[in-house]
């Protein structure tokens, strides 16, 4: 599973890096979640291809494409349970691995129910606030 994800990410990185002038960006067909908002497309690949398990640490790869080009900027990630209005006990960290490719670590959903993943994606010019609900 992990190898498949790594191979897919590798292919995307290769595609991004092999274009000298216009960097291409696309979301893999089998990304766990794809979200489009105001010209930004986000792909989320769950660690080990499975959605989060209650109480387990997980990380996610985020692919961010803006009008088919890799989005270069910062991402702030958090999660909360809207029903109870409480967040996680952990503060995730997001690092850019290459243009458009981000790794978010340090997530633990410690309860069954609906969790809202929040991604604040921003650069000097733009800002996108993305939310995605998933129920465990």
């Amino acid at each position: 599973m992990k190898t498949a994800v790594a191979a897919r990410i590798g292919a995307i990185i290769l595609a991004v890096q092999s274009s000298s002038y216009v960097l291409a960006c696309s979301i893999p067909d089998d990304a766990g979640v794809t979200i489009e908002q105001d010209g930004l497309t986000i792909g989320i690949i769950w660690q080990q291809d499975t959605p989060p398990i209650v109480g387990e640490v997980f990380e996610l790869n985020i692919i961010a494409c803006e009008e088919s080009k890799p989005f270069v900027g910062e991402i702030k990630a958090s999660a909360m349970m809207p029903a109870h209005n409480h967040g996680m006990n952990y503060q995730p960290n997001v690092t850019m691995k290459s243009p458009g490719q981000y790794l978010a670590t340090g997530f633990v959903f410690h309860m069954f129910g609906t969790w809202r993943l929040k991604l604040n994606i921003f650069s000097d010019e733009r800002r996108y606030d993305i939310e995605h609900d998933l129920t465990l």
């Binding site: 640490v57 409480h86 996680m88 006990n89 952990y90 503060q91 995730p92 960290n93 670590t105 340090g106 633990v108």
Partner: peptide, 12 residues
């Protein structure tokens, strides 16, 4: 050590 690294201190 991922949990230890990412732990938050919260009022609750």
């Amino acid at each position: 050590a991922v949990r230890t690294k990412h732990l938050q201190l919260l009022h609750r």
